[in-house]
Every structure is written in C-alpha cells, then in structure tokens.
C-alpha cells in the first residue's frame, strides 16, 4: 500500500496543559480506522505556554501521528467552542481528512457536532468499540451504547460522507509508540481566530487532585445508604487510596447528599472504570445502565436482595460504614508494602 492520502485527523485534547489519555485513545482509533496505508494527522489546540503543547506534540508524533498541527493562539486560552472549532477547521483544510476523531468529553461533545455540521458530515458519538472495515471498502462498524448501555448499536458511515467520531474515554486502547525513526513531524498551523462569541468569565476549579469520573480507573460510588453528605467521607478516603473518583446514585443526589455532577446512571454519567465499588446502592435499573459495563464490580449493601448484587463480581452483605474503612485500611497496608 502506498496510499499517502490523509485518512484521519485526531483532535488531541489537553487538560491543564497535559495531553489527556483519551487523546491517545482517539489516536489509536484513528490509526485503526485509517488502516496500514492511510496516514493520520493530529491537531493540538491551546493558548498556553508553547512548551506544554510541544511536549504533547512530541508524544503524538511518537505514537503514530504523521503530522502534528499545533495551533497556539491567545484566542484559545479559554475554551471558546467557536475558536476551537475553527482551529480544527484549519487542520481539516490542511489535512483534508475523511475521518475526524475526538474524545467524547465535555470539549469533544461540544466540538464534534459543530465540526460535523460545518463540513456536512455525520457524527457517531460515544463510540466504545471499533471493527475496522478492511481493504474491501466495507465501512467500519462503530459500537455505541443506547439507553446508557441497556442496548448497543453498531453504526457505519455511508459512502462519501465525511466522518466525525467521538470515542468514549477508557474503552479503546491507546495508540502504541511507533518504531524509532518512524516519528511524525510537528508543524505550527497558521490560524486566524474567528470573531469570538464566548467570554470565559471564570472557572471554579474542582478540588485539587480529583480524578474525573469519565476517565477514572476506579470509582467508589455511594447511594442512599450513605445517609448524609458526611457519609461520603469514608468513600472519598477509599477512592483516594485507590487513586480513584467518587460517584453517586440518583438516590444520593436527590437526597442532597452530594452534587448532581457525581450522578452515575441513565440520567447522569455513564462510566466504565476498571473497578466500580458500589456502596449502599440498591441498583435501580437506571443506575445499572450507567455502570454495568465496568470491568470489575464490587457491591457493598446491607440488603442481600439488592439488585446490585446481580451484576457484582464480588458482593459483601454488610454495613458500608464498617466495611469501607476496613477496606481502606487494608489497601493502605498493601500499597505501603508493595510500594
């Protein structure tokens, strides 16, 4: 194969100046979709110190991006969707890709529909698995959840339609490094910021060190069984030891024990961590939809008949306020020994 046309463009999202893992998962997806013969470009967008973007660019180039387009402009210091969409547009004009891949993140969910509508393409969102189409010209099959995971569909693009795909964090493998010498090159991309609509007036940052739910490897979630806002403290302690995030069921959110931002379920966030520990969550169908694709599920509940035990790999019938601190202690000891 000597096809050197650009097949795919990846929007490589950064958070706090660092390349997000989902950016490397999107790059992996793009390489898979482009196939062996097709080239993959990446676009890095930001208005921060150039050095941070250069570091991210080098990583993308080392993991199979043939060209990394860097758009570094003061207009991109805050997240103005129109400015970011225009930066992706500049990369689309430069690379002429037939496939554009973004992470299904707050930024990607905002940008992908605009990019798709702007180029007359389709958007397949929240993709969790990809079956490449192969050389026969068959379209790739893109698996995505429906009803937050109560069912799945495979979608494909119709011939000739520009393809915009957002991939769910934590589901696809990251792009592997290419052989030494095969690295791509990095180029500054000329960019004219559009007239800006969005003025970012301020950001209330999340508490330091908090892991984002969508990308967390471990989630410790609480339900009505935590009984109060203070009841989340032992869960937060366990999450911290495991390097994970705290989540919640709708019941806990509705009861005012925690913020709706933590809600996991068909309303709320759908998550797929490596380990999900459900504490005092009964397992309503709309909650199960949001978490039952997690790799390993642990349930801790007083009620042996709670439906959550039906999807749990390991169940503990007991009081979370007794069991969770013991677990925290146990893991702290284990990690101290090995680490």
């Amino acid at each position: 194969m000597t096809d050197t046309t650009v097949k795919a463009l990846v929007y490589a999202e950064c958070l706090d100046g660092k390349l997000r893992r989902v950016a490397l998962e999107a790059l992996g997806a793009a390489r898979l979709l482009a196939g062996d013969g097709g080239s993959v470009h990446a676009v890095l967008v930001g208005g921060g110190p150039g050095a941070a973007l250069q570091e991210a660019a080098a990583e993308l180039a080392a993991r199979g991006a043939g060209v990394v387009h860097v758009v570094d402009d003061p207009a991109l210091a805050g997240f103005a969707p129109e400015a970011y969409a225009a930066a992706i547009g500049a990369a689309v004009a430069a690379a002429q890709p037939s496939i554009i891949v973004l992470g299904h993140t707050a930024a990607g969910r905002e940008l992908a529909p605009r990019v798709a509508a702007g180029i007359g393409g389709g958007h397949v969102a929240d993709v969790t698995a990809i079956e490449p189409g192969g050389d026969g010209g068959a379209a790739a099959l893109l698996t995505r959840p429906l009803y937050a995971g109560k069912a799945f569909e495979q979608r494909r693009f119709l011939p000739g339609a520009p393809q915009v795909i957002t991939v769910r964090p934590n589901n696809l493998p990251v792009a592997e490094p290419v052989a030494p010498g095969g690295e791509g090159w990095i180029a500054a991309l000329p960019y004219q910021a559009p007239p800006l609509w969005t003025v970012v007036r301020g950001i209330a940052r999340k508490a330091g060190g908090t892991v984002d739910l969508a990308e967390a490897d471990v989630i410790v979630a609480g339900g009505r069984g935590v009984r109060s806002p203070e009841g989340f403290a032992p869960l937060a302690a366990l999450a911290e030891v495991l390097g994970g995030a705290v989540g919640a069921s709708r019941g806990a959110c509705d009861a005012g024990y925690c913020d709706y931002a933590l809600q996991i379920g068909q309303t709320g966030k759908t998550v797929t961590p490596k380990l999900y520990i459900a504490c005092g969550i009964s397992g309503a169908i709309q909650h199960l939809a949001g978490m039952s694709q997690s790799r390993v599920i642990v349930a801790i509940n007083k009620d042996p008949e709670a439906p959550i035990f039906g999807v749990a790999d390991y169940g503990i019938v007991g009081d979370l306020f007794e069991v969770v601190p013991l677990l925290t202690q146990r893991f702290r000891t284990l990690f101290n020994k090995t680490g």
Partner: peptide, 12 residues
C-alpha cells in the same frame, strides 16, 4: 443520511 445502523445488540 450520513450514517446508518448496521445492527442492534443486547448488552453483554
């Protein structure tokens, strides 16, 4: 249309 459904599946 730009896309179409190829199949519908139950969750694993």
């Amino acid at each position: 249309p730009r896309t179409e459904r190829a199949s519908l599946l139950p969750p694993p």
